[in-house]
Amino acid sequence: MIEWDNLRFFLTTVRAGNYTAAAKRLRVDRTTVGRRLERLEHQAGIPLFEQGEDGYHPTSAGHQVLTIADKIEALVTELEAVLSANADAEQVELRVAVAAELGSEFLQDLTDFSRLHPHIRLRISTSHEPEDDVVTRKCEVGLCLVDPLPRHLRGIRIATLRQAGYASTTYLDHKGRALAPQEYDWVRCTSSSRVRAMKQWDDIFCRTIRVSAYVDNWSALRGSAEQGLGAAFLWTFVADSEPRLNRVTPLHEELGVGLHLVVRDDVPMDQATRQFMNDMAKRLPVRVGNT
């Protein structure tokens, strides 16, 4: 008979990526993890892991076991919630990597999630390549700007984010309105910046504009435009809702990029990850104003 506790060890090991990381999450030693998985394979009568170039991965049978174990876990979690409705839930940690190009624009949504789910402690990091952080298991969830989704990832497409040029009311009162884009002073991303999505406009117009300042991150780009240092190419979902900013260029449809919530495609989501994905899939389209 297959024991649920051994399946739980199997799920945790696949999610963690190796025995050592799984042991840390399960608060046991590495030997215990290995012994539990050996017992599960003996009970199943077939190998559940195989070694590849980058470590151990579930076999075909292992993937079938994972699918069923994931469903069992969801039911067990639901049962535990019912039985302990009046008790404090054990706190778990969820690591989330947010694309650097987004700055802190979704911090309020993450804060609202934390207040609604106090048992889930978020560890939020800003990353130039959040999709790679998910693949390499540095985090469980990535909020990414990618098209199309890279290999080894699955997720939810939230929206297509677009860009346009904006300047503050103060700047336009001084410089003039309804001018050609080349007549304004612009704040640009530095050539060495890794803020990829925010540099697309630079690649088109960089030879025809005057530059008042260079910055290397989204917050500085937005702040410079708001303070009147010059015009800047910003996310429309942010700048259109800022009363101090005015659009000074047409919307460039070709510069759109997909906003995705992603996880590894070979790792079943645990309850915390599932709650986060479901919650953010509802919140973020409202935040950005399109789907």
Rank of each mutant, 00 (worst) to 15 (best):
Q43R: 05
G62Q: 07
V28I: 09
S241P: 00
P47C: 06
F9W: 00
G17V: 13
A167P: 04
Q43C: 00
A16S: 15
G165L: 12
L79S: 05
W186N: 02
E183S: 15
W4Q: 00
V65I: 15
Y166S: 06
A231L: 04
E3S: 15
M280S: 04
G52C: 02
N217E: 08
S114P: 02
G34R: 13
A180F: 01
R222A: 06
V288C: 04
S241M: 02
N217D: 06
L107T: 13
I72C: 08
V288F: 03
L11K: 00
Y19I: 08
F9H: 00
V187P: 08
L259V: 12
A16P: 09
D133M: 14
V263C: 09
S168A: 12
R287M: 02
G52H: 10
L7F: 03
H174Q: 15
R287E: 01
I158N: 00
A180T: 08
R222E: 02
V76F: 01
S193M: 11
E183Y: 05
D88M: 07
W218Q: 14
G142F: 04
E78P: 01
A178C: 10
H260R: 04
A69W: 05
A97I: 00
P118K: 05
M280T: 07
R35F: 09
I124P: 01
T13I: 06
V257Q: 14
F10A: 10
A81E: 15
S114D: 00
G142E: 03
A22Q: 08
E242R: 03
L94W: 05
R207Q: 10
V257T: 15
R121I: 01
R15S: 04
E80H: 12
R8P: 00
T136L: 12
S127F: 03
Q200N: 13
